[in-house]
Design a protein around this nucleic acid. Structure first.
Lengths: 112, 112
DNA sequence: TCAATATATCACGATTTTTTAATATAAAAC
DNA sequence: GTTTTATATTAAAAAATCGTGATATATTGA
């Protein structure tokens, strides 16, 4: 995310509160990965440890650890430690609303 | 987007129509860039040529050309040619709904 | 203390993305 | 025709991301 063009937090016309492009792009980037999407989807069922995610998704341990951390940094996942276990959960369930919209887009606009 | 883990179109439980993770990740990836976000925001005002985008965003010609094409490929922008001009517009305005949600997320969860 | 378990971190090659500059194409104006 | 204008394409370097394997840390239980 190293965009060289001018960066502004405010939008085009007057005082409408627009996007913070850099921060928004980072969140989108965090979402833009098949495995991370699957993590979020699986977590809709409820809290889950990293190990459980690993099994549910069939991927390596460090992969899960790293991707969960990334999602955490962008405020998409919260975690709590219980002994040696790390429970992951959806932070801000509002974000899940994006998925239906995206799913529709993929189906309709990119019909495949 | 070269994810080595298992790829499935259907979700976790039964027959709920889940995400196409790869396609969805690609769309998100297309959105995950400050300049591309700005292009989409500017285009909310209406159709605009690549040159006008260039001026509006203060960036180079090939940059606009390339990013617009990328957005086009993911069904986010439509274009029409008129002589030597290329008019760009928002395809599927529904996608704009994502922005308010993301903006809220950035403000609240990543409060900055 | 030692071993086992769960997670974190690190390092690396491979791939992808980003950005710029140069050049190509194609339509319009002259 | 030539020039001008708008856009497309290409090439290339720099940076970021992806995925893996190795290792580190930390907690638990024997």
């Amino acid at each position: 995310m190293r965009c060289r063009t001018v960066q502004g937090k405010t939008g085009t016309t007057g005082n409408r509160p627009a996007l913070n492009y850099d921060a928004t792009a980072k969140v989108l980037q965090a979402l833009a990965h098949p495995l991370r999407l699957r993590i979020l989807e699986v977590l809709q069922q409820g809290e889950m440890t990293c190990g459980e995610l690993q099994n549910a998704l069939g991927c390596g341990q460090s992969m899960v650890s790293q991707q969960v951390k990334l999602l955490e940094h962008q405020g998409l996942v919260t975690t709590r430690k219980a002994g040696t276990l790390k429970y992951c959960g959806i932070r801000n369930p509002d974000i899940l609303k994006l998925f239906s919209c995206l799913s529709k887009h993929v189906r309709e606009v990119l019909r495949k």
